[in-house]
Simulated scan of single mutants.
Amino acid sequence: MRNTARWAVTLGLTATAVCGPLAGASLASPAAAPASLYAPSALVLTVGHGESAATAVPVRAVTLTCGPKASGTHPAAGPACAELRGAGGDFDALSVRDGVLCTQQYDPVVVTVDGVWEGRRLSYEHTFANECVMNATGAGVFTF
């Protein structure tokens, strides 16, 4: 009987020593609490020269996080997130800026986007005729 009591006390102390700090950290630490009640929006955008992502030569890549606040390595994260929110996360719905004139030169540029938009998995690929046409699409989403 003494052996059983000793094992019970040892097991109880071990459980308290291991699980106690974990439970305390999640209850007491604000860093462990969710930052927002909104679904995450985090994307990786890439640009490459070529007609498809499979054959394109990668040139640049940035990250764009739009929730809870705009951040990432994208140089204009705030305006890019605002434009994407206005389009409902639909890259095909991004408008072309007025007054931008581009040459008819065909030098294909492919853009890929992978990640999560408002909790939904997102994968997008689009080939633009040239870099000018790409930069004219949206309010700087693809300007990086």
Rank of each mutant, 00 (worst) to 15 (best):
R120P: 03
R60Q: 11
A33P: 01
L43R: 01
D107R: 08
A76P: 00
V133L: 09
V110L: 06
L45M: 09
R6V: 08
N130H: 11
S95N: 07
W7T: 09
C102L: 10
E131F: 11
W117Q: 00
T112F: 02
D90Q: 07
G12R: 03
A61T: 10
W7F: 11
R2P: 00
G12C: 13
V96Y: 15
Y106D: 15
A54I: 01
E118F: 00
L11D: 07
L13H: 05
L45K: 01
R120D: 08
V111Q: 02
T63C: 04
T16Y: 00
V109P: 03
F91R: 02
R97I: 05
A17N: 10
V109F: 03
A129E: 13
V111E: 02
T143I: 00
A15G: 08
A31E: 11
A87F: 01
S29Y: 03
S52Y: 01
A61L: 04
Y106S: 13
T55E: 15
V96E: 15
S52D: 12
G67H: 13
P75S: 09
A8V: 15
D107P: 03
P58N: 07
P68L: 09
Y38N: 15
V47D: 00
H49L: 12
V96S: 14
V116S: 02
T143Q: 09
T55M: 07
T103N: 11
A8C: 13
S36T: 15
P75N: 04
T143F: 12
V113S: 02
G78A: 13
A42K: 05
T65G: 06
P75V: 06
L13M: 14
D114A: 14
A139D: 15
C19Q: 13
N3I: 11
T63L: 02
A77N: 02
T55R: 14
T103G: 13
G138I: 02
F142W: 14
E83W: 00
G138P: 03
V141G: 04
L13F: 10
A28Y: 15
L45G: 08
G12H: 02
L101P: 00
A76M: 05
G20I: 08
A93Q: 09
L84S: 04
T112W: 01
S71R: 07
G86H: 06
T103P: 01
V44A: 13
G86M: 01
E51C: 00
T16K: 00
A25S: 12
T14M: 13
G86A: 14
T16A: 15
Q105S: 11
C81E: 05
P30G: 10
L94Y: 09
S26V: 11
V18E: 02
M134Y: 08
G140N: 09
P108S: 08
L84E: 04
L22M: 12
G89S: 15
G78Y: 02
S41Q: 07
S26Y: 09
V100R: 07
E131M: 06
